[in-house]
Design a protein around this nucleic acid. Structure first.
Lengths: 341, 341
DNA sequence: CGTCGAATCCAAAGCGGTTTGAGGGGTTAT
DNA sequence: ATAACCCCTCAAACCGCTTTGGATTCGACG
């Protein structure tokens, strides 16, 4: 069913039918009703491609999902972020176009979005401290929103981020208040902006209590369960082992727990743990009492906010283009006072 | 840069340029080279929308991601499946269009894909035993591939699935061989096809050893960490507690482990556990020795296969439209012989 | 009764490609 | 020299929609 067929059926011109359906004022309310009814009964909806061609707007947002070439790993928060963003897109009539590429040719993917003109905007993930995509996209001239920030970027850009520094500072302070002095940090890759900020928060909290951060207690790497486990095992095997561990991802925290328990120790009593919690839908941190004490911020909500910001930008609204979400610190069963040796 | 601009630049007609770029034989090799070079240096790529309109092919595949309305939960395997499918799409020049909808109006989403003609095919997930989407999509006339099967479907359809029955039968047999008699099953929602098949496999194995399945050991529900934990706690509190647990998801298995250890028991010694493992990239089951004994099948590979099958169907190749993958049973550290009481 | 304006509706020109059907130029056979 | 033929190339139509710039109708007003 095309517009022309529908208009023939109604004895109207395509113009009128198009206007009726798109809510233009030049058409009488009576015809509008008639047209709308006919469209519904005949199951007519405008062909997206034709409409996009005519309007110059693709009504689609692009997401590039880079796959770490070496580890073949998908970022686990991606599903939830996507779900949040997707909600907002649907509500606003946008499609979500996803491009899965190995992280070497990510730029190529953006360029291709731009030249093929099949999206109106982009969301980019996981920025590094000095992310080359920002100047690149500024040149490209396609609106975009960054999920996260890039501290060393010079050009302005729109972003939605969590206050990672504050979150880790507060978490560290809580551990210090509980009497912990040797606190390990199992962080993500620190060339990533979020990880660098988390470390800064951790160090700031230590510094404010006059404690020098001990490099041998700080780790930066892929946030996998296995990493969490292995690092914990080696940390706890040391004579000067830490009494508390600060972890950047709940998945890693699961590995930490396994490591602790393999040694016959008890989480929250022998060793304390605070983790960052993205509030992933398939891995909720307990139902009533949280399993882990955590700094939590919903990545799905971040997805919603980023999507809305991008749509606003595309539509030329001049709403704010920077949004800093705060994480909440929730007490769970993985923390307790430091024990005297 | 449009085709016309490029052709003006080259002093050729749009026709010739288009043919040159699309590999038609009517154009000389010399011009083809020249055109290709110019396209590259000027960064020209055909506008997807215009091309789609002209050819009648969208060069895009639709995925509908239903969000469980009550639990706001995204299927955790979705990210990895998507990553696998996306690889194949990129390689074949297809885009991936994702539509996130509440699971009530999923049909509406398919219908909208069909009438708006912005995809050439669909992949559908998580079929139930008698999935209404299959007859619906057969009517709709848009090619599709099902990830999973729908046992009670009458009409034919293309699918990629894992042999869930065999996987759970073998897992149960292994536990029986280890001397376990009381084996609990923590399954997914059994109106879902995969869960029904897993249960059938479990029951078949018990039956072949003359054991009557005990309904009080069988559970069907959302496969969350919390569920795994809570069910394990209540199972192990019983006087006639099971000595082994069969679990449908590695995420749930993590909860089971937590429950076991909270009771001061040891996994693999006091209680055995076998889990289904989708080989999720962000939750690999151990590095060298698997943490959990598991029936494993890569959902990412399933994504690749399903995508390839769909593309073949769209292109009218008559390759097979049914694919049953086998899961491998890998021995990890969560199983051991049943202990005499 | 003629004129004006508002209210409707329409024809036609794009949007940026692909594709059909035909034409132009250069070789070779007659 | 002409015809026959092969290569290349092109003009124009078309895909399905939006949108500009009229055209038409009708009631109101002077």
């Amino acid at each position: 069913m095309t517009l022309k067929e529908l208009s023939d059926l109604l004895g109207l011109s395509p113009t009128t039918v198009s206007r009726a359906l798109n809510g233009y004022p030049e058409v009488s309310e009576a015809t509008r009703k008639k047209v709308a009814a006919a469209a519904r009964t005949h199951g007519y909806a405008p062909n997206t491609r034709a409409r996009a061609l005519a309007t110059g707007r693709a009504m689609a947002i692009g997401h590039v999902i880079p796959i770490s070439a070496k580890h073949e790993m998908v970022n686990p928060i991606f599903a939830d972020f996507t779900a949040g963003a997707g909600e907002v897109y649907s509500r606003n009539g946008y499609d979500m176009l996803m491009s899965v590429v190995s992280d070497d040719d990510e730029e190529q993917a953006y360029r291709s979005f731009a030249t093929k003109r099949n999206v109106d905007g982009l969301i980019i993930h996981a920025p590094s401290l000095n992310d080359g995509r920002i100047p690149f996209l500024n040149d490209l001239g396609l609106p975009y929103v960054v999920h996260g920030r890039s501290s060393n970027a010079t050009a302005p850009y729109a972003w939605v981020d969590v206050n990672n520094t504050r979150a880790f500072q507060r978490a560290t302070e809580l551990l210090l208040d509980l009497g912990h002095q040797r606190i390990a940090l199992l962080n993500g890759l620190e060339h990533m902006d979020f990880a660098a900020r988390r470390r800064a928060g951790y160090e700031a909290a230590l510094a404010s209590r006059g404690i020098n951060p001990d490099p041998s207690l700080m780790f930066s790497g892929e946030m996998t369960e296995a990493q969490g486990h292995d690092l914990t095992r080696s940390l706890l095997a040391r004579p000067d082992r830490p009494t508390a561990i600060l972890v950047s991802s709940i998945i890693m925290a699961i590995g930490v727990r396994r490591g602790i328990e393999e040694l016959g120790l008890t989480l929250g009593r022998d060793v304390s743990l605070i983790t960052y919690d993205d509030d992933l839908s398939y891995f909720r941190n307990g139902t009533d009492i949280p399993v882990y004490t955590a700094t939590r911020s919903s990545v799905r909500e971040a997805g919603r906010r980023a999507a809305q910001m991008l749509i606003d930008i595309i539509n030329g609204k001049d709403s704010p283009t920077e949004l800093l979400l705060e994480a909440e610190l929730t007490l769970g069963m993985s923390t307790g006072p430091a024990r005297r040796d």
